[in-house]
Design a protein around this nucleic acid. Structure first.
Lengths: 218, 218
DNA sequence: TGATGTGAAGCGGTTCACAGCG
DNA sequence: CGCTGTGAACCGCTTCACATCA
């Protein structure tokens, strides 16, 4: 067995754990009981060795000669990822992308509740969209504190993103998912991840242009 | 100087090049003429050495003692990334996320035109949304071929994603951006990138839970 | 002088190969 | 016997340090 101590876990490992979990939930729906590292790898676009190594960073959860119990491994991964609870999320910016996120049920299914949304447009204030109340942007700090919100999503135009991040950080939010196409600075005790659709397309543009199949995991 | 030969470029390098480009465009708007690797690094969340190394994989574009010419480097990166042209994109699935993408002007600003959209709901067929014609999903192959579309975006429910990917690949699309929360298989000559919002939030959940500031580039 | 470009060192993630065990 | 768990080898990205040159 393995220590599961204060090991430093890489971002790529964490991302793969999430992918494993997503796949395990699908297997659960299908009523599968056991799964091997080979099958997990095939379903998640990686290798059996990588799967076993990733899991071994946290303990030993398999049965030699048989594989992993789907349900047990699923719960284990949920625990590791901190998904044994629900998370309250603040959404800032209710434009095209923000509205889509408000109506996107997959978030709630996977444990993330948008508890409040904010927009600077007074016309939107007071509305309830997809069951979520829209507040004036001015009330961000107040509401985030009051509702003990720990995660923020920025879906504003890029010009406002940094200011919003500052306010979210100031209000005690520990992590931010940023959809604005800019890099934003936050204090060390806050984590940001930026999702930029056009940037991903640019990566694909490079691949198509250079003809270069980039280092591909099999 | 440097060969810019058939070097194998890592995905992380390509992603950073896109970030540099995004930042350079901002500098252009601001009228800045020169930029050093240090400033580029600060604005893009990386290190000066990393910036210089990334660029050196393709050539030498700077002036010793001065830095890089913003405009020149911007055009160089656009060339490297294959952005010296516009790309035609097919959008499949016009639900919450798909609709948001249809109205998201940043895509067009950065060179990606949604040339056609597809949905299996007959009620939507024939409509024109944000200037884009919506076709029945049955006409996907036909329209993609006719319009010489090279990129696909999947924004369908996860159950349909694999079938759509198969059809896009069959129709000659070389790269796919997948918003459905499943891993999809494609032939070797096609590249897929999956964007899963909940998966990113799970990564943040892990960080908040483990208290572990993951290996952070500064 | 100041910042680039780059070989070399360092480091960490991935892959290998096999011991361990059900 | 089959598949997990894991130390060790491997490999590639990142960082360092400095020669180079405007």
């Amino acid at each position: 067995m393995s220590p599961s101590g204060q090991r430093r876990i890489s971002e790529s490992t964490v991302r793969r754990l999430s992918v494993y979990l997503r796949f395990l939930r699908e297997l659960t729906r299908q009523g599968r009981e056991l799964v091997s590292s080979r099958q997990l790898a095939r379903g998640c676009g990686t290798t059996p060795a990588q799967v076993r190594k990733d899991l071994s960073l946290f303990g030993s959860f398999g049965k030699r000669g048989r594989g992993y119990t789907v349900d047990e491994l699923r719960r284990t991964l949920e625990g590791i990822l901190g998904l044994g609870r629900r998370w309250r999320v603040a959404l800032v910016g209710v434009g095209k992308i923000g509205s889509a996120l408000l109506g996107y049920q997959d978030l709630a299914r996977r444990g993330f509740d948008i508890a409040a949304a904010f927009d600077s447009d007074p016309a939107k204030t007071g509305q309830v969209v997809s069951g979520v109340r829209l507040y004036s942007a001015e009330r961000l700090t107040e509401v985030v504190r009051m509702q003990h919100i720990e995660l923020g999503i920025i879906a504003t135009p890029p010009e406002s993103a940094q200011a919003v991040a500052d306010e979210l950080a100031g209000a005690g939010v520990g992590a931010i998912l940023n959809f604005a196409p800019v890099e934003i600075d936050v204090p060390d005790n806050v984590t940001v991840r930026t999702m930029d659709v056009a940037l991903e397309l640019e990566g694909l543009s490079f691949v198509l242009t250079s003809g270069d199949r980039m280092p591909s995991r099999k």
